[in-house]
Nucleic acid binder design. Structure first.
Lengths: 352, 352
DNA sequence: TTGTACGCGTTATCAA
DNA sequence: TTGATAACGCGTACAA
C-alpha cells in the first residue's frame, strides 16, 4: 500500500488534521509544526491520494478535452496550447477523441462526468447542439473552441471565420480574380467551415460576383481531398483563376495537383489556404493563407474556462482570436495603390 | 449533489450492495432484481462516482501519457493511435506535455501517480534514464514508445531505427551516391535520432565510405531547421549529391531551400526523409522516406501496456513496428538489377 | 439471493 | 494552534 497521511502524521508526531492543514497551506499552523510535517512528507515521499480528495471536495482540477481530427496540424497546436495553459493554471487534462461521432462524444462526456472534471473544452462540432444539451444538463462549465456558437449562454473561443474568409475573397477580387473556386469542408463538419462559407458569400456579393454553389467542392481537410478537389475543379471549370481552400492542407494538396498538371502558380491559378500552419512557409510556392494561432486558441480557451470555473465575472463569453491574411507566393500581390484601399482592414502583406 | 447509489437503491427498493452488484455485473443477483435496479439507474441518470470507486479499488482505468513535441505530425498520429486503442480497451487518457523538460516530466509523473493511473506511456526521451528510475520506484506499469530501451526490464515499442536508417543509406550508396550529408536530431533529444545515426554509420562502413562527423548537421525536427541545415550543407559541402534528413519535416524544409536556390531534385541532390507523414505524398517532388505508422505505434503501445497491467505473460517486452523505404520522386530509382541485389530486404519501391 | 457494516484516504466541523 | 470524529460514495466480507 502507498504512504498515506496517517503515516506522515505518525512520523511527524501530529494528528491527521494537522497534516491536512499543512498540505493545504492553512495559516492556522505553527511554523515549527509545519516544518516537522513537511520533513516527514519528504522523507516518506508522500503523495496525496487524489481520489480521496476529490471524493471529499468534489473538485478534481481536471479538465476534459473532447476533440476530433486532432492530428491535423492546426488542431495539434490547439491541443498544445490547451495543455500548456492548463498546466500553468494547475489543471491536468483528460483527453478523448470523438472521431466526430456523437456516440463517442456522449461516452466521453459520461466518463468525464464520473471523474468529476471541473470543466470541459469541446473541439468537436458535428452534433454540437445535441452536445450542448447534455453539457447543460450536466452543469459542467464548458467552452467551445471550434467555431462561433450563437447560443448566448455558451462560451466559445474562435477566430472570426466570416471576416477572415471575407478578407481572402476581397483580396482576390481586388486583384482581379472573377472566376474563383472553393474547397470547403464536409457539410456535416466544422462550424468553422460553414462560417467561412458565409464570409465567402458576403464578399462575392459585395464584389458583385455571382454565387455559384457548384464551385464549392467538398473536401475533408486532408491533403488528399484537396488534391482531388482541385482535379474536379479544373475539369469542370477550366476558366478558374483562383482557388480558395478552407484549410492549408487542402490548399497544399491542390497545389500539388496543379503543378503536376502544368499550371503555373500563381500566374495561371492563385491558391489560398486557411490556418497558417508552419508547412505553408516551406512549400513551393509558399502558401498564402489566413494565419491564426491554434496555440493561442487553446490558451484562450483554458483562460476562459478557468474564469468560468472560478465563477469570475466575464467580460464576454465570446472570445475572438486574431487572424491575418498572409500573402505569400501562391497569389499575386496587389499593387500598393490597390492595397491602400483595404489598408484599414489590417491585412498583413509579407513574403515571410 | 449528484445522484448516488443510495438514491438508486431507494428507488429500486433494494440495498446498496445489490445496486453495486448489478453495476459490476455480479452473477449473484436475480434477474428480476437486476432489472429493477437498471431501471432506477436509467431513470435517475445515475453516474458512478469514479473517485469513490478508485479509492476503494485502487484501480482507475486511467492511462497516463507523457510526451513532447506531440504537435509534430508523426507524434500526433501516435497520440491518435494511443487514444483509439485505449478507448477500445476501456481506458481513459490523461495527457501531459513535458516540452522535453525533466522537471515537467517529474511533475506529471507525480500528478499521475496521485491519480492512481494503471499504467503510463512515455514518449519523451531526453532524460529517460532518470525517468526510468522514478517510474521503477513508483511501480507503475510503463511502456516507452519512442526508441529502443536497452534495459531488459523496460518494455518499449518502436520502429527499428537502426535498420531503417541503414536501408536508406544502403539504397543511396547503391544508387551511386558517395557524398551524402545528414540532418540529424538534437544531440540531447530523441533516442530515435541516435539510433538512426547508428544505422547510417553502419551502412557507410559497409559501403566503405568514410564517416565524417562534420556532415551531420543538427536540426530540431522542424521545417525551419531542415531549411537552414540544407543551407549550411550546401555551403560547406558543395559536392554533396544526397541529403538524408532524420524526419520528413526537415526533409521538406531542405527541399524548399534547394529548389529556392536552383538545385534540381533529385538530379542535383537527392533527398530522403523519415516517418512517412502524409505531406510527403504532396510535395513537389514527392518525398522518399521511411514509412512507419505512428498510429500503429500508439496502438501497439497500449496493447503491450494493457497486457502488462493485466499481468499477462509477455512474449517479448520489446516490440518493433514495421517500416518500409518508400521511394518517391525525391531520389532516382535503382534499376531493376541493382534493386534485385537488395530485394531480400523487402524494400518497397513505389511511386505512390 | 440479499442486506449490514466497515473501511478506502481525505477534508471539514467542532471542541479543546 | 491542535486533535478527534464524521462525512464523501463505493466495494466487499460476512451474516442472514
Amino acid at each position: 500500500m502507498d504512504v498515506t497521511m496517517k503515516d506522515v502524521a505518525k512520523l511527524a508526531g501530529v494528528s491527521l488534521s494537522t497534516v491536512s492543514r499543512v498540505l493545504n497551506d492553512s495559516s492556522l499552523v505553527r511554523e515549527e509544526t509545519a516544518h516537522k510535517v513537511k520533513k516527514a512528507v519528504k522523507k516518506l515521499d508522500y503523495q496525496i491520494n487524489d481520489s480521496a480528495r476529490i471524493l471529499r471536495t468534489n473538485t478534481s482540477n481536471l479538465i476534459g478535452v473532447i476533440g476530433a481530427g486532432m492530428e491535423r496540424p492546426f488542431l495539434a497546436n490547439l491541443l498544445k496550447g490547451i495543455e500548456a495553459e492548463a498546466r500553468e493554471k494547475g489543471f491536468a487534462l483528460i483527453y478523448g477523441d470523438s472521431d466526430g461521432e456523437f456516440e463517442k462524444e456522449q461516452n466521453y462526456l459520461n466518463i468525464m462526468k464520473q471523474k468529476k472534471i471541473d470543466g470541459i473544452i469541446l473541439i468537436t462540432t458535428n452534433y454540437y447542439n445535441d452536445l450542448l444539451n447534455i453539457v447543460k444538463n450536466y452543469q459542467i462549465p464548458v467552452v467551445f473552441a471550434s467555431g462561433y456558437i450563437s447560443d448566448p449562454e455558451i462560451p466559445c473561443v474562435t477566430v472570426d471565420n466570416v471576416a477572415a474568409a471575407y478578407d481572402v475573397v476581397d483580396y482576390l477580387t481586388r486583384a482581379g480574380h472573377k472566376e474563383i473556386a472553393f474547397i470547403k469542408g464536409p457539410d456535416l463538419d466544422l462550424l468553422a467551415s460553414q462560417e467561412r462559407l458565409r464570409g465567402v458569400k458576403l464578399a462575392l456579393r459585395i464584389a458583385q460576383l455571382p454565387y455559384n454553389s457548384g464551385r464549392f467542392i467538398e473536401g475533408d481537410f486532408t491533403f488528399e481531398s484537396g488534391y482531388s478537389a482541385a482535379e474536379k475543379i479544373m475539369r469542370k471549370f477550366p476558366k478558374i483563376t483562383a482557388i480558395f481552400a478552407f484549410n492549408d492542407e487542402m490548399a497544399v494538396g491542390a497545389i500539388r495537383y496543379l503543378k503536376e498538371n502544368g499550371y503555373q502558380i500563381p500566374d495561371d491559378i492563385a491558391v489560398v489556404g486557411f490556418d497558417g500552419i508552419e508547412l505553408g512557409k516551406y512549400t513551393l510556392p509558399t502558401l498564402t493563407t489566413i494565419e491564426q494561432s491554434g496555440y493561442q486558441l487553446g490558451l484562450k480557451s483554458i483562460e476562459l474556462l478557468d474564469k468560468i470555473i472560478a465563477e469570475e465575472e466575464l467580460e464576454d463569453n465570446k472570445v475572438f482570436i486574431p487572424h491575418k491574411l498572409v500573402v505569400r507566393e501562391s497569389i499575386n500581390k496587389l499593387s500598393a495603390k490597390e492595397l491602400a484601399s483595404i489598408k484599414n482592414k489590417e491585412v498583413l502583406v509579407t513574403n515571410n
